[in-house]
Structure formats: structure tokens, C-alpha cells
Design a protein around this nucleic acid. Sequence first.
DNA 1: AGCATTATTTTCAATGCTCGAAAAAAGAAG
DNA 2: CTTCTTTTTTCGAGCATTGAAAATAATGCT
Lengths: 389, 389
Amino acid sequence: MQGAQSRTALASLTGLSHASMTAIMSDLLTQGLVAELTADRPDGRTRGRPATFVNFARNAAHAALFELDVNRARLSLIDYGGVLVDRIETDLTPTTFAGIAPCQFLSDRLDALLARTPAAQKTLRRVAISVQGILERDGRGLRWSPIQHLAGAPFATELSVARGLPVTLHKRGRLLAEGARWLDPALHEASVATVFVGSTVAMGVTFRGQIMGRGDEGATEFGHMNHVPNGALCRCGMRGCIEAYAADYAVLRNAYSVPETAPPAPAVPVQQYEMLMQRAESGDRSATHAFNLAGRAIGFGLSRMLAIYDPSHILIVGPGARALELMRPEIDQAIKASLVGSINGAPHIIAHRDETEPIFKGLLMKTLNDIDQVDFAPLPSTERAGTAG
Amino acid sequence: MQGAQSRTALASLTGLSHASMTAIMSDLLTQGLVAELTADRPDGRTRGRPATFVNFARNAAHAALFELDVNRARLSLIDYGGVLVDRIETDLTPTTFAGIAPCQFLSDRLDALLARTPAAQKTLRRVAISVQGILERDGRGLRWSPIQHLAGAPFATELSVARGLPVTLHKRGRLLAEGARWLDPALHEASVATVFVGSTVAMGVTFRGQIMGRGDEGATEFGHMNHVPNGALCRCGMRGCIEAYAADYAVLRNAYSVPETAPPAPAVPVQQYEMLMQRAESGDRSATHAFNLAGRAIGFGLSRMLAIYDPSHILIVGPGARALELMRPEIDQAIKASLVGSINGAPHIIAHRDETEPIFKGLLMKTLNDIDQVDFAPLPSTERAGTAG
DNA sequence: AGCATTATTTTCAATGCTCGAAAAAAGAAG
DNA sequence: CTTCTTTTTTCGAGCATTGAAAATAATGCT
């Protein structure tokens, strides 16, 4: 979504008439949600009345986006135009949240961020947090998370009270789905499964453009789908999950022939995981074997998913996306051993290079949408979606 | 959907105003799609202006519905009011379609049906066929079916040409989903997984009232989800499918200790399957063991499904629904061994007594809807759905 | 400079769907 | 025969949307 468009372009993009577009835009202009760009853009067309471009008014609102991962916390300040204004990154360790309450940690980062951009303080509308794990049913806290000491306290509610702002919690898998829709216009209304492979294995799923999962905050637990009954020990405490074969810690464990019932490492440094890939790419037997096991787990998982849900696109994102080619033979073989795979053929599985973009994009779009839907209440929901093309 | 309702009732049911309801109904009345009932119904209310009930005009259209199963073919004539007018049943054997082309078989039954109700001939609008197996992508034929000799010929197209009528082919799993929505108003907008257990294992899935699957005719292949790599031989030719443990032929095979790589029986008589249940219910060890294996396969299948899709309701239908209590311990145990199951608890799984009703109901509603949407083109789609309550 | 050309944007009257309120209708109760 | 109750219809208004025409703002050509 880059919204600098002429009214005519928006009209054909949304399928509305020019007349409607004028009416809607004059509404939004008086509300101060969009602005006309005076700077005439150097685009090819010269004849005719020059188009006046409209865009979201960047200062109409700001939002703070936290992305919490096993080894890193990232806080981004974005404006209503979807532009990244500022960003703070912090390393996390398995003991971080043993030393500081999650709410306090988040509040401190937020202070630091706002200190650098004081102007955003007045227009800050929302805080959104991306987490891994299983959310409470009400979406206000975590029941379980691979990030140590994070589950338990309802830190979203605490932060909301402390700051007097709406704070939303989003499962990473769900944001993957949201983000994938915006990576490519072709995916926006398609059925897409987006698989994250890295410190965890997660999946976001859209079905004809709708994000699947129970309730508004639902998501899948692909990483914890059973692969082998009573199999390898997973971080979640269960045995035989896909993640226990395909996440970074699992590949590490298998590459070094650690028994698969050994407790998983709480966090794997990025470099170590990258090194494993290099070793496998250069032919190292034990590393290759570990990635084969990972591919097999993902392959059977996908084959089982295909029996229920048959997306038009399968994307692999995250640090593990680089290892897709190492895993592909096993993935293909597992899928071919199933009826759907043998009849429909293996689906197209593609790796998306930038691991963090889908999650950030998803968080960003979801939050801007929340601002539109909730904070700036009665707007036609088609309007922001229309700028996708 | 029983449409005999007063305009006032319909208004509150649909949420539309009385004024709109009057307008819509007068439209439909002049189009001849609905009729007013003159027979005053003996309902409690006496005071006030008596309500005039409106209902679908039964003679506005008719449809012929085929339900093809492994051992039986059933043809039903229904009218626009959704009322069953007549029905013909025919036993099928694995050799039936070796002797007669599917199109010819269907056409013969259709002749027999129409001979008994000649009045329907003029208003017959559509033929709809419920089948098992995997459809071609265009939905006009079968790639594979457990019904012997049925796959291959594009008999839907042939019949359509021969009769000059639209003929649609529907995967049974999909109809399960459609039918389940109409079994209970509470299910209509819910997320429901409906599992058929009997001569096959099939599943229909709705997500917030929408039926899932690729394209308009998509459905799931739950029965052919892999349960155990390289496991029992399935009718589909693959190994380790859930069906190869949980369908009637699989239970039979396991109960008699036939090796699980032995070719599946092409059809199992209903009585034999019922007898197995009785033996298991009265404590027979080998029968109990066979149903345990079936429960385990279904349980792991559901647990794997839950990792991706978490429905609010799980229904078990079909002949095997009677055996649910035999299978439930293994189902529960398999689900409890997964992260989602252990955190969210085992979902509510309920058996639906009448096995054929969901499929027939689904076929009926889908076909009536097709008549509305396609044949009586530009009607507001809310109108029929509104009569659900 | 003046006019034709081109493309964008706005205006305007009309359409279609919806609604709330009031009115009309059809009986029962008193 | 009047009053009451409930259903159904009528009526005018509101609202989002549209196509067509008009207005606008530039360039290109003579």
C-alpha cells in the first residue's frame, strides 16, 4: 500500500465511480485523514489536467509496534501513512523477563522511543505487540510462549492501563497471514499459507483473503502439529511436534546427534543457525541429515494440511527460508506420498527472502486497520484495502 | 428451513424492516417464486390482524438429486419449497458401472422418477449429483472415486447434454459442510467440521459460515490425510491414510486380523459393519481393538486438523457415528497429546444420529441455492438464507 | 495569443435500496 | 358498535452510488 494516487487511479482501483471517489475524498479531507500532495510528481504524462495526488495524512495518527522474538525485541514507530518513523532494537535473553516485568520493559522502550520523536506523543493512538505462543481466549495475555517468563501476566492490559492507550496482542502466525496479503497484490484475495521457519515454526493462513483462526485473534499452531507420536521433545513440552524437528534448535540438536528427548535450547544465536546451513550446503553429512529431518517434518505437516486446506500459494519465510532448497526434496517426497499430492501434484512452495518484512508489514497493516475501524469509527472499510494494487 | 412465515416474522429474522419485506415479497409474488398460504394456521395468537403466511411456491421449480454411495444410489425429486416429492433407491455393487455407463444409469433412473411425477417434467430445473472421490478441477468429472468404474467419463457433462439441463457434481465432503449448516441454526454462521465415518472417511468444513476448499467445488480430503507413513493400504492406493484405519473396510480388516497391506474390500455390507459394532459393544476383544485403531486414526487426524483450524463444533455423522463412544477414548487421548488439545482442552465432538440427513440436506440446500442464484438470477442472496431460524 | 486537445475532477440529477412513522387492514374483545 | 391489538402497506425521506455533462487545468499547434 503506497497511497500516493490520483483520484482517477483510486477510482479504477476500487471499482467505484469518479463521482463517489470525489465525495469520499472530500469527506476524508475535511476529517483530516488524507491530504493532497502539492508537489507535482515527475510522471510521464504531460497532456491533460494534471492529477492531484492524495495520500493518507501522515500526522493523523501514530502507532507503536513491538515485535517480540526469542532473541530480540524491536519497537517501531509508524505514522498513519504507514511510514516507519523510528525504530529501537533490544537483544533478549532467556532471562530478560525474569529480571523485569514485561509491562515495565515495554513501557521503558516506549518512553525511549517517544523521547526521540516527541511530536508523535500527541497523536499516538495504539500500541500493538507481536508475540509467539498461545494467546488467552480473550487475546489479552499469553497462556504459553517460547519466550521465557513472558506468559502469565496480562501485560497487554497492564500496559494499556498504564499508558491510557489501546494495546493489542497479536500472534505472530496471524500477522504472517496478514503480512503475506500485502507482499504481493496477487496474494491479497488468494488462499495463502505462510510458514515461518526459524526460532519457531509458525503458520498464518488466509482463505480467500480472510484470515483464518478462531475469533479475531485466532491463528494456527502448525509448528505444534503432531509429526510423530511420542517423538522429539518440543519447547512446548509436548513430544513429536513439527517444530521439534524443524525449528532452529531442533536442527541444531539433530546436527550434533543430541538425543531428541534432550531439553531444547532456550535460544539459538542467529550465527549458529546460519553456520549450520553453510555446513549443509557444503555437504556436511550430519548437518544435511538434520535439515532432511526438518524437511520431512514440514513436508508431512504440509501434506496433512493439504488434506484439509488447499491454498493456492505456500510461502516460506524466516531465517529457515534460506534452507528451503536443503529441505525441498524431503518436502516434495512427503507430499507425493499423499493422495492429494499425488493427484494435484506438489503445490508451489516459494521462499520469501526478507524474513522480518511479512511480520512487520502484517503488524503495521493490522494496526492501521484497527485505527481506521475502531478509532476513526465509521469509515467504509473498502477504502484502505483499495490502495493495495 | 421451513419457510411458512409471516412477513413480520421474516422481517425480524432477516433484520430488515417491515417496509422492505413488503417490497421484496411483492416482487417475489409477481415473479411467482413465493405464494401466500390461505389456510389459516392454528397458532396461539388470536388478537390483532391475522398474519398471512408466505412460503416458497413449491411448483416454481423442481430438482433431481442423486446421492451415489459405494453400495447405494438414491434419487430424490424435490420442489422449490424444499419438500421431498418422490424417491427411488437402487443398490449398487462394485460391478454396476462396469455394466452400464454412469450417464446412462443416471438417465434411466431419472426417466423412472419423472414417469411417476410427470408434472415435474416441465419445471425440472437442475440435476445435482453427490459423489465420493476427487473431482476434476473444473468440477465436471471425477479423477478418482471409491465407487468402482465411476471415475473417468465426464458423466455430468454427458448427462447435461443428453437432458438439456444443468447438471452439477458435488463432493460428498462438501455437502456435509453445507448440510451441517442447516441442521441447527446455531451452526449456520459457526465454524464446523463435519466428519463422515462409514464406507469412507470424509470431512466438510465451514469457516464462519463459508464452506472451505479450493474453488466453488473444493472440499477436504480428511480421510486421506496421512496417519502413519507407509501404513495400512487404503482404497485410494496410498498407504497410511486415516481412512485405511477408520472406514468400515478398515475396521473389518483389523477386526479379522487381515494384514493391513491386504487390498481393501471394495464394499462392506451395512449389516456386517453393524454387527462389528455390536460385537465391540459387548466386549469382543478383536472388534474393540479394531475400533480403537479407528479412533486413534481419527483422533490424530483431528489433533492435526486442530493445529491449523479450530472449529467451534465437530460433528460425526454416517454409519460410524454410532461407534463414536467406542472410539472416543482413543480420540481424546490423541488430542490431549497435542499442544492445542492440552491447552484448549478436547473440543466437543458430538455424533449426529441420522447419517443421511446432512448429505441430503446439503445437496438440497445447495441446489435450491443454485436455482436462486443462477436460474432466477438477480435476487438478493439474503432472502433464502434468512428463513433459517 | 488563441484555440484545439487531453485528462482529471467536480457537479448534477437520477436510481435503487433502505428505513421510520403513519396509515390502513383485519379481526377479537368488550 | 366501539375499542383494542397485531399485521401489513403506504408514504416520504435518507443515503450511497452512478452516468453524463460540465468545469478545470494543463499542453500542443497554428
